[in-house]
Design a binder for these strands. Sequence first.
RNA 1: GGGCGCGUCGCACAGCACGGACCAGUGCCCCGGAUUCCUAAUCCGGUUGACGUGGGUUCAAAUCCCACCGCGCCCGCCA
Length: 601
Amino acid sequence: MAKGASDPGGQDAAAVDPLAALVGPLVDALTAALAGPDRAAVARLLDTDGGDGWDVAIPLHRVAAAAHRSAPELAIELANTLPAIPGVVRRFAVGAYVNFEADPAWLAERTLAMIAVRGDRYGTWEGSPATVCVEHTSANPNAPFHIGRVRNALIGDTLARVLRAAGSPVTTQYYVDDIGRQSAMVTWIWSKPKESWPPEILETLQGADEREERADHYLGRPYPAVSAYVKTHPEAAAELASLSERLERGDASPEHRRYCEAILQGMLASLARVGVSFDEFVWESSLLHDGSVERVVERLRKAPHAVVEENGALAIDTSVYGLPTEEARAIVLRGNGTTVYPTRDVAYHLQKFARFARVVDVLGQDHLLHAKTLKALLTEIGETREPEFVLYQYITLPGEGRMSTRKGTVVLLDSLLDEATDRARAEVRSRNPELGEGAVEEIAVALAAGAVRYHILRVAAEKSVAFRWEDALSFEGRSGPFLQYSFARATSLLRKASEEGVSLPPKADGSLLTTPAERALVRVLARLPRTVANAARTTHVHSIAGYGHDLADAFNSFYQLTPVLKAEGGERESRLALVAASRTALGNTLALLGLARLDRM
RNA sequence: GGGCGCGUCGCACAGCACGGACCAGUGCCCCGGAUUCCUAAUCCGGUUGACGUGGGUUCAAAUCCCACCGCGCCCGCCA
């Protein structure tokens, strides 16, 4: 319903966005004719969703009211007096609206030509050189990924892809917390000889084989039990506290780093299975060792709202920032002189600000207070810049609520992927009996990853998701494999065409692409650049997933209803060009979502 | 108690930024069809039905405002 006409602007949009070629001149003509609202206001008013017999519409209630005129009259007048607009074959008034119908041939030719020229760059924009840092995932190195934790990684990774497509140079960072209590628990238990482990912790190793399990799985086993144990055993808690303190002071044994490193590598292997990787890793300890945390502490001591607590702890009075803490203060330095996480995070952000024009953090919604505290602390030390936060809600388990590694109520990413791969393997085999094992495996793995990735990405970040196996494992309908299947179909059709010696025309004849299915497909194809621009601006990566489904859907309808290779002459060539354009757009969308492009499946 | 977020067909989601019409879309489920033809993980058609409640603003509200209800998360010298 309306909108979508916003101008991503700043460049010659018509060179990268087929709809801009249609909408741009339309906006110009309307702005001139209305002689009231400016260009941007007119563009905002436009509805580019398309409907029954129209592609672009403008409601005139508001402009008419401002001009003290009747909207229907103005609509009729406008429809009659507007000059000819390139690409628009028909305009007509309906009530308070003027509807414009694009010339389908014109739109098809422009869109297909642009896709052919832009290739894998279709959908991307030439942006500014302003660099962006997207920090995401940053999970403590203490246990394997469960699918709740992985939502962060998928949103962050996809956001990075989308921002790059929108024209920003993006660097992704994973902040590795090797200082805190969580990772200290790992070293605390594993640095003890197993004979001395409390039985309830040792029990977690039952049936485990160090040689067969990846480090994150194996070394992460005792974590929930350790977490519970230290709550009820003060002497253990004291040991842990002392270890934490030593870690912060930098004189802990080197084995701690080895444990963190090993678990992290395991976790990254998990993420690699769903196509997530990082440009850079920032170890929290490095900020302590290079003195940047200390410099932050010095600045915080001089902060306008700094207060020293009775035991020597340093706090910031946050009452002016309206933070919803009971005591309206944020501790930044403990009584024992060590720092807390927010303090170190300030140092990390200063480092990011020094290198990047834009700083984006992907955070679970339980970190909201921390995000606000971080902003307050940055303000306190006189920093004027602030990070942008992309918050997401949790994936919950029916009856269990939010997943918790500590509580052991999790569905592991690896388990989900394993199950998905098993199902995909069986499916691929039965459909492609002639395929070798290697090829089957490769396709199954790609489909499993696609299903899981898409399933999590399709929901808006701010919605919580109730996890259900059967939904996560679906390969039909609104799913990753549906998109991948469409791409494979298009690829296979093009392959066949080339085998039969049918080649792509230098230029498609748009006047031959006029069936409803063809027109609908062209329209969806033309939408990709705007969809990318909107997703980047709003950080709503789920809209790309929605677009992908629309595109696959339109392509499949066309595919089913329209013979291509069996058509003749120019019709065959033009349809083939439409298939090629669809394959390109589908492939680009798949890349945006981080799904593998399969030539067959 | 305070803060933030969410509430749309039986289920799961989109639409809300910047309020617009013409049936509020989609997937799953259910029913009926399509394969001598480019991959049926698909397509075509059908049934059902929903904007949490109550107010307000407006020519126009799923969309904006207020209140309430329900659910989730947070309110550590944890991270």
